[in-house]
Design a protein around this nucleic acid. Structure first.
Length: 362
DNA sequence: AACCCGGGGAC
DNA sequence: GTCCCAGGGTT
């Protein structure tokens, strides 16, 4: 489908939209500045994340790292700790790489065009469009989930937004109608409209400033758009954590690549294919450990991710034989760590819950 | 093109 | 429960 439209023909609509945005937009901290570092920070934090959830993280990152240089020179573990609980931790790792890339390759100054921005790690088509338009007035669309919904309804586009090829349709459409000036405000207005008016389930069409331009509304087809086919299939996983303590220390490890929570810390883990709470004793026997005491066994912690449902148990075990503790540590790339300093490490949400709710044992 | 990667809130 | 959120990277 090739719509033959030009920016000029859509000026009445874009003006309505921009006026509405000017009068009704939410006051958000990242909107008070066009500094690329701050906009970048907010855009990455808000990827697949609601404003209400990302807000406190944005403020904390600004407080801790006022400039790109501050961010770049911080240890990755510190970034991850600040990111703890926000999810999609690759965002934090990629930001750290990106920041250092800008320091070393661009002399610390953010590149100012879509085509340069999109080459940076962690900055894709949406984020490049957002930064280029908001910070540098480039007339390029920023197509996020909101924009997909607004555009699909406004022009009644039934292409499946789950398909990669569909992005091109929406991007080119955006390029046709985006005003050459105020492109940043225009993109933000589209997203604001999607977030507050053009809602997925029950859009508030009567409050929409461009309702008279909306083809889906004319056809009463809002509910059917956008078309999205992709369904996730959820797998079940069973985690049995060994919380091995000795004196004031506990064994931990930093999680590696090719699984969830890369870079975060957790405990030695036995994963099983189903509920097998007693697997823990078989394991300890295999280790030929005899001098230990089970201090505490938790009930099941349920934790839901997009693609996985986790069933987690924690067994707190005091190891009385120091050599066992030490050898096991060396064999498994585990680290001994002071229990009192656990809170300085980035941990996954269920580990955080466990540490808060029932550790250390009284 | 298909799959992986978190956590939370609205309904 | 289902859907979606200011998506991007890897294979």
């Amino acid at each position: 489908m090739k719509l033959k439209i030009k920016e000029k023909e859509w000026l009445p609509m874009t003006q309505e939209l921009l006026n509405w945005y000017k009068l009704n937009h939410r006051e958000l901290p990242w909107r008070s500045s066009k500094e690329a570092y701050k906009v970048w920070l907010s855009e990455i934090i808000l990827q697949q994340t609601r404003v209400a959830q990302g807000m406190s993280y944005y403020l904390r990152f600004c407080q801790n790292y006022a400039t790109l240089a501050d961010f770049a020179k911080a240890p990755l573990d510190d970034i991850l700790k600040l990111w703890q609980g926000l999810g999609y931790y690759s965002r934090a790792r990629n930001m750290h790489k990106c920041a250092n890339q800008i320091i070393s390759e661009f002399d610390g100054a953010f590149p100012q065009s879509y085509s340069e921005l999109i080459k940076l790690i962690g900055i894709g088509k949406y984020t490049a469009g957002a930064i280029a338009s908001i910070c540098f007035d480039e007339a390029v669309p920023a197509i996020d989930g909101n924009a997909f919904r607004v555009y699909s309804r406004l022009f009644h586009i039934s292409e499946d937004i789950s398909k990669a090829s569909t992005f091109k349709t929406f991007f080119e459409l955006g390029q046709e109608i985006i005003p050459n000036d105020q492109s940043g405000d225009f993109n933000q207005a589209i997203m604001e409209l999607g977030a507050t008016i053009c809602l997925p389930k029950n859009p508030k069409c009567e409050d929409c400033p461009i309702q008279h331009y909306c083809v889906a509304r004319a056809k009463k087809a809002q509910q059917a758009l956008p078309v999205k086919s992709k369904k996730v299939k959820v797998s079940q996983r069973y985690f049995n954590y060994l919380v091995l303590i000795h004196d004031s220390q506990v064994l931990i490890r930093q999680r590696g690549p090719k699984d969830i929570w890369q870079g975060l810390y957790d405990f030695p883990l036995i994963e099983t294919k189903n509920h097998t709470k007693n697997r823990i004793f078989e394991f300890l026997n295999e280790q030929k450990w005899k001098d230990f005491e089970v201090l505490h066994r938790t009930e099941e912690y349920k934790h839901i991710l997009t693609h996985q449902r986790l069933h987690i148990y924690f067994d707190v075990i005091e190891v009385r034989n120091w050599q066992d503790f030490k050898v096991f540590c060396q064999d498994n790339e585990l680290e001994r760590h002071e229990i009192s300093e656990l809170e300085t490490l980035a941990v996954p949400k269920p580990i955080e819950r466990f540490l808060q709710d029932e550790f250390p044992i009284q």
